[in-house]
Amino acid sequence: MRNFIERHTFWAIVLLLVVVLFLWMIFAVWPDWLVEAFGRKKTFVNTLLNGVTLGGLYFLVASGFTLIFGLMRNVNLAHGSMYLLGAYIGYEVADRTGNWFLGLAVAFLAVAISGVLLQVLIFRRMANDDLRQTLVTIGISIIAADAMLAIWTGTTYQFSPPDWLFGAADLPIISVIKSSGAAVYIKYPVFRLVVLAIAVAVGIGLWIFLNRTRIGMMIRAGVNDREMLAATGVNVQLVFVLVFAIGAGLAGFAGVIGGTALSVAPGEDIRYLLASLVVVIVGGLGSITGAAVGALIIGLAEQFGLAYFPTYGVVLTFLIMVVVLAVRPQGLMGGRG
């Protein structure tokens, strides 16, 4: 952080000013000219919060994707299918047992196991052939999408999480002051804030796991030099299986979270695959921090695009990707080119 400020003082100041401006726009009561320029404050704050929470969800999905790529150089294009599979399994379990948390846990475990199977049965056979691995994941995602359509049909499913997770909370942010002088506070769905909290918790958990544990050390070593790690006597295949399990499990986990915050339907797999792709392209492939930064940027861009220029929202996301690729092909946080 200090390094960044010393090296790019100008950009650090710009960034600081933007943050201050945003904070002011969030907490101040908007003067009339600003309302005229931007619309109501409520829209702005809601869009901002939606963007940040969507970014949290994207981070949950993309972190597994980038973790798997970082170690195994394996672009898992079936990641979106894993997300959807997790959502459906979580829904079935939560629906039958009536326990949402059980659904979450089972989705994580089941998808993690499917990831382990993929790694052991297929990817291990074609190590060091990344294009073929990618083609295989495409084949798997075609079959998985069709199988899921056959089992769960085209219906949209809606989770029913515990009541205390639903509903709206008053945020300590004043939207407008009525003529009577009473302040109107902004309401926001609790569950979306929970999504954000979970994303932050998972992010911190992953950071601690990778940077402060022995297995995490092995994984980081594997990212840098797989052969040397194997030469020091570590069972690399076991580390691979573990990372694949965590990465896939996170996708399933995100499936239940995302399915609860939004809904579960066929086609979501492509949507979240696109999100993961763009997030890791922008953030830098293989970097957890990059996934966090990318997810935040893409989440915000998508929501602001949706709110302020509806038909061109996708283009905004795409433009960000193109600009990043043009300026920094390895992604914002990508170390190696």
């Binding site: 695959l273 696109l274 392209i281 990707m321």
Partner: peptide
């Protein structure tokens, strides 16, 4: 290089 192409072009197609 390499495997990025497939990701970027897929992103273009979906977008």
């Amino acid at each position: 290089e390499g495997i990025y192409t497939i990701m970027i072009t897929l992103a273009v197609a979906v977008a």
